[in-house]
C-alpha cells in the first residue's frame, strides 16, 4: 500500500513541480474522503493539479468551467423527452464522474453553486423525482480565484465548510520555475502520465485511513485546539470541522507510513483544514498552533 501512495506522489510531482507539500495535502484530502478547494490567482496550475491527480489515480475525470450563466442542469443533467420511446430520458451531466473539476467555482451564481455543493454532501442527485447515485469515489476539486477578483460570487461560510481542505499553490521556487520553463513539467506533459492506481485500491486506502490509531493524548490535543478556536477567535470550528481535522491527520499519518497519529500530523494539516473556515485573518492557523499547548 505504501508503495502505491509513494508512486502516486512521485508521479504527480513530476507534473506539478516543486509543490510536494500541496500535492501531499491534496492526496490527504482525497484519502480522507473530502472535497478540495484550491484557491489561487489564475495560471498557478490549479487545473493541472486536478487533472494530474485524476490521471494518476486512474479515475474518470470531468471538468466544468463555471461561468455566471451556468445553470444547475448544466452540471447535474437534464431529462429530455424522447420521441421514439415517448418517455423522458435522463441525460447525465458532468457530475457523474469520479473526479469533477469545478473550475472557478466562484464565478457561478449562488444557485448553481448550491446545486453542486448539495450533491457533494449527499453523494446523489435528484432530478424530476428520481434519485441518481453518483459514482464512488466522488471528489470535487474546486478552484477559485481570490475573492477580490472581479466577477466572482464569494462562497458563503456554510458552503466553504463543505470543503474539507482549502489549499493555495503559490509561485514555484526558482529551480522549479526553471524546470518548468525548460518544458519539463506542466500541463504539456500531463498526457504522458500513466495511472498508478485504480478505483479498488483507492477505496482500500480510504478504509485504511480510518484504521490509523488516534490515541487519547491526541484527542486531548484536538479538543484543546477546537476549544481554543471557540473561545479565542470570532467563530469557532464546527463539529464537522473537528471530525475533518481528525480524518486529515489520519490520512497524513498514513501517507507518512505510520499507523498512529502524532501532533505533527495535526499541525501539518491544520492550516489547510481550518483557515478557510475561520477565514478572517491570514495567519489564524499559525496563531492557534502557537497558543495551544500539546498535552
Amino acid at each position: 500500500m505504501q508503495n502505491t501512495i509513494q508512486a502516486i506522489l512521485r508521479a504527480t510531482s513530476q507534473i506539478i513541480l516543486g509543490k510536494e507539500r500541496q500535492v501531499k495535502l491534496s492526496l490527504t484530502c482525497l484519502l480522507a474522503g473530502g472535497h478540495l478547494l484550491i484557491e489561487d490567482v489564475p495560471g498557478m496550475g490549479k487545473t493541472t493539479l486536478a487533472n494530474t491527480l485524476a490521471q494518476v489515480l486512474g479515475l474518470s475525470f470531468r471538468r466544468t468551467q463555471f461561468t455566471s450563466d451556468l445553470l444547475p442542469a448544466d452540471i447535474i443533467g437534464v431529462s429530455i423527452f424522447d420521441l421514439n420511446t415517448s418517455n423522458f430520458q435522463f441525460h447525465a451531466g458532468p457530475i457523474f464522474t469520479n473526479i469533477l473539476l469545478a473550475d472557478e467555482i466562484n464565478r457561478a451564481t449562488p444557485k448553481t453553486q448550491s446545486a453542486l455543493l448539495e450533491a457533494m454532501e449527499e453523494h446523489q442527485v435528484t432530478v424530476d423525482g428520481s434519485t441518481h447515485l453518483l459514482s464512488q469515489p466522488f471528489f470535487v476539486i474546486a478552484t477559485q480565484n481570490p475573492k477580490h477578483h472581479i466577477g466572482t460570487f464569494a462562497l458563503p461560510e456554510s458552503q466553504l465548510d463543505r470543503f474539507l481542505m482549502c489549499i493555495t499553490l503559490g509561485y514555484p521556487d526558482a529551480l522549479s520555475e526553471r524546470a518548468l520553463l525548460k518544458n519539463q513539467g506542466g500541463r504539456a506533459n500531463a498526457g504522458s502520465i500513466q495511472a498508478v492506481c485504480d478505483v479498488e485500491s483507492l477505496l482500500k486506502l480510504q478504509r485504511l485511513v480510518n484504521q490509523v490509531h488516534v490515541s487519547d493524548a491526541l484527542l486531548d490535543y484536538l479538543q484543546a485546539l477546537i476549544q481554543h478556536t471557540r473561545t479565542q477567535t470570532a467563530e469557532g470550528l464546527s463539529p464537522r470541522a473537528g471530525l475533518g481535522l481528525r480524518q486529515c491527520a489520519q490520512a497524513w499519518a498514513l501517507i507518512d507510513g505510520r499507523n498512529f497519529v502524532t501532533p505533527e500530523d495535526v499541525q501539518a494539516v491544520l492550516p489547510s483544514v481550518v483557515a478557510h473556515r475561520l477565514a478572517q485573518e491570514s495567519d489564524v492557523a499559525k496563531q492557534i498552533l502557537e497558543q495551544v499547548a500539546i498535552p
Binding site: T262, P263, E264, Q267, E290, Q291, V292, A293, I294
Partner: peptide, 9 residues
C-alpha cells in the same frame, strides 16, 4: 519547548 511545539519539532 515553545508553546505548541511538537516533540519532533
Amino acid at each position: 519547548p515553545r508553546n505548541g511545539e511538537t516533540t519532533s519539532d
